[in-house]
Write a protein that binds this DNA or RNA. Structure first.
Lengths: 192, 192
DNA sequence: ACCTGAACACCGTTCAAGT
DNA sequence: ACCTGAACACCGTTCAAGT
């Protein structure tokens, strides 16, 4: 990568982060290029699709989320680990508004630039779920898809201004639905 | 309303229904006008916003949903009535893909053309919830907003191709979370 | 290698001009 | 009253031409 290209790449990513923070995941690509003082075609050259841009924008955080699952897997009781991680996941998909739709789309599209990272998060969560199920503290009739779906649904709810005020409460309700043992206690314990 | 206007109105609505069935709630207004052999400005004259169009498109079904809550309120056990109606609601928001986002938006925007119908559905559901709560068969720490939010979230899940295959299962999971008594049995009973 | 302006085919909004 | 074409300001895609 040539020096000028490298510089453009980094700058575009920084500007994109700004614009996406303001306008959410369906910010205009043209707007990002404009704000970066660069031709639109240059932005598209570095990030040929919106997914490619978000892959670069989210990779670090997605990896961190996957990594966190691995750590929780060894250090915490299975039910607490599951709920703690689930909470992190919901917070993550809300990092930028509208990002949850992008991830849900990528989840079903192996050719998407975001697919690999989503799949990694998916299976990291699945492992935590299986561990809690083995212990009997998580619903037996759930799988990794369901966990990812519920995480996404809670993220979507947080994106809608009409539902956002109750998002925390809805998180508890669904976390309780996932767990089987004295549900409300477990969720509270895992909060800390 | 002049005869030619009336004819345009009805025709536009019929064509809009077709196009929206094919392309979902964010179908192009221009496309609808084109398919109706009418100027774009004519479509916009009858339906100044997308919300106005959907208000006309959904009014009948929204009213039916509200009406159904009233009927269930008198004829069925509170818990069964709640779950049955909840199921209808989820099915409704999936009637056209993407319509759930429109409704969630209208829910927080009193100036939207869709607001009134959404509010009616909201409070119809709230009454069913209160009745079940009074009986002790629904979670006490929920309100009408939560019910509407969960209904919307399930509708959204059904819209995402990656989650749709598990939508039925997720419905059961959440319906169980709403009810308090031998949950899995109640949900099954209400299915009939 | 890398960048860019311009042409293209879209979108919804607005309004002066027509019947 | 009602309709319409056209101008406008946007969008993402594509590519020939430049350094």
């Amino acid at each position: 990568m040539r020096a000028d290209a490298r510089k453009n790449y980094d700058h575009l990513l920084a500007v994109a982060r700004e614009v996406v923070t303001e306008h959410g995941a369906d910010a205009s690509m043209r707007d990002i290029a404009r704000r970066a003082d660069v031709g639109l075609a240059t932005l598209l050259r570095h990030f040929p699709t919106r997914e490619a841009l978000f892959e670069a924008l989210l990779r670090e955080n997605l990896d961190a989320l996957t990594q966190q699952a691995v750590e929780l897997e060894t250090s915490n009781p299975p039910d607490e680990a599951l709920v703690s991680w689930f909470r992190e996941g919901v917070a993550f998909v809300q990092s930028y508004s509208g990002v949850v739709a992008l991830m849900a789309g990528a989840h079903a599209a192996p050719e998407s630039a975001l697919y690999a990272s989503c799949a990694a998060v998916h299976s990291a969560g699945e492992r935590l779920l299986l561990r809690a199920q083995a212990e009997g503290t998580a619903r037996a009739d759930m799988n990794g898809d369901d966990l990812f779906a519920l995480m996404s649904a809670l993220g979507w709810l947080g994106d809608q201004s009409s539902f956002a005020p109750r998002a925390d409460h809805l998180f508890h309700l669904i976390a309780n639905a996932i767990l089987t043992n004295q549900p409300s206690n477990d969720v509270k314990k895992a909060k800390r």
